Simulated scan of single mutants.
Amino acid sequence: MGRQTRSNDWGFPRWRAYGSERVAQQVRPCDREGCDEPGDRPAPKSPNRPDRWYFCERHAAEYNKGWDYFAGLSKEEAEARAAGEQRDAGAYGQAKFYGWGGEGDGTRSRDEMRALDVLGVEVDASFDEIKAAYRRLAKANHPDVAPDDADAATRFQAITSAYEVLSKAEERRAAS
């Protein structure tokens, strides 16, 4: 028999593992002078150009430590770029609670949902309704109103902490 003319990669099953070619893999070295580690982490050469440096992990961290995204831009250009970045990334901020797939319309976190359950209000309740429910429950469960009830203090603490969670969430929504 003569020399084999077909490779072992034809047909089924493959007789050789994937990625076991005989040709040496090309590995791009780190672009830092004197470094011989693989350069597998791209870093931009300038803000408005597609050119990239390729560094190893250590040199990429060193390069990015002093990186200023807004370097060379005027104040108006920097503000416009920041507003564009905020606009483009805003959808991620709005969707941060959708991953849990809980009740409601996806605008409340898991902690807020628990707090709403403690106060006994609906998921879509306004903050005025939440405040009214808090005041009603706080008056009914305050330790001074029911001094002989041992569970009243525990219920009052739960109601107060639930209201704190919801009021902080309302402040965050009002600020953004």
Rank of each mutant, 00 (worst) to 15 (best):
R87F: 10
P29A: 11
G11T: 06
A146M: 04
G72L: 02
D148M: 11
D105V: 00
E79A: 14
D9Q: 05
H59R: 08
G90D: 00
Y98L: 13
P42H: 01
P50F: 15
N64Y: 03
Y63S: 01
K139C: 08
Y92R: 15
K75Y: 14
R6I: 13
R136L: 12
D51T: 07
R172M: 07
A125H: 00
T154S: 15
A150N: 04
G104N: 06
S176Y: 04
Y163V: 02
H142M: 06
K45T: 13
S161C: 05
S176N: 11
M1R: 11
A78T: 11
A78Y: 02
A174N: 14
Y54G: 10
D117S: 12
F12D: 09
E112W: 01
K65D: 11
K139V: 08
D128A: 15
E85M: 13
A169Y: 04
K168G: 09
A146L: 12
P13E: 11
G102C: 07
S176W: 01
L137Q: 14
L137F: 04
P13S: 15
K65R: 14
Y163C: 11
W15G: 15
R173M: 08
L166F: 09
K131L: 08
W10E: 11
Y63D: 01
N64H: 08
R155I: 08
